[in-house]
Amino acid sequence: MVAPALLVTAGLFGGGLILTVVQSVGVDPVLGGQKVTFAAYRTLAADPAVRASLLLTLGVATLSTGLSAALGTALALLLRRAGRARLRFLAGLTLPVPHVLAATLVLLTLSQSGLLSRVTAALGLTRGPQDFPALLFDPLGVGVVLELVWKETPFVALLVLAALTRLDGRLHDVARSLGAGRAARFRQVTWPAIRPALLTACVLVFAFALGTVEVPLLLGATSPTTLSVLAYQAFTDTDLGRRPLAMALSTVLAGLGALLLWAYVRTGSSR
């Protein structure tokens, strides 16, 4: 039954992946590349901008995953306590918002001449755009992390909440009757229940943060920028000789993703 779906996935995704790897080693009959060469990878390894970009990419992905995991779990616990369907609906409202739109909203709100800056200027707190903190286009990727956390926190919350809903409430009562405090109950009862869901959510958030192009393109600094943006720039370069670089960068990103998947599967099976 799953065969057709699997075939489509394997064909489209696997085929694309194979082509990417093949082109990353310089084999491209249309552009006249016939021999296998690792020149693109050597160029990447020697480029300090790529190293800075790798650090930024991993930093942004880790930070946004960590923050949305913490905030998302807290939100899920709050929603669980409040128990109102309407609140849950509100919390999930940002889920269908595309990242491009979310990034644009962040831009309109938080840029140095954005809405917030105008409010502070109107209140006399700042004299102009130059006084407002430069949250966006910064070399540390603060703007990118803010957008990702805003978008992904409700996503994490939703997955964790689903796990919490499945949790039998009486377990808490039993733990309490056995003398467990709040912290102990969280550790012994809640945590094991939400851990798998939280882990899944984290992997998904991290994988997205690793590969997103639109968010760092709109909110990131010119340099350093994330690997995905570097790949995009190399891919859209008018110099066709830079295509192998784009493909090599994409292969590196895919490798990072595969590593993550491997770690996830291992953690899952060792449980």
């Binding site: 430069a134 286009f137 010119t222």
Partner: peptide, 9 residues
């Protein structure tokens, strides 16, 4: 702008 650390895209 921004000390030349970043540029509009």
């Amino acid at each position: 702008w921004r000390g030349g650390r970043t540029f509009p895209a």
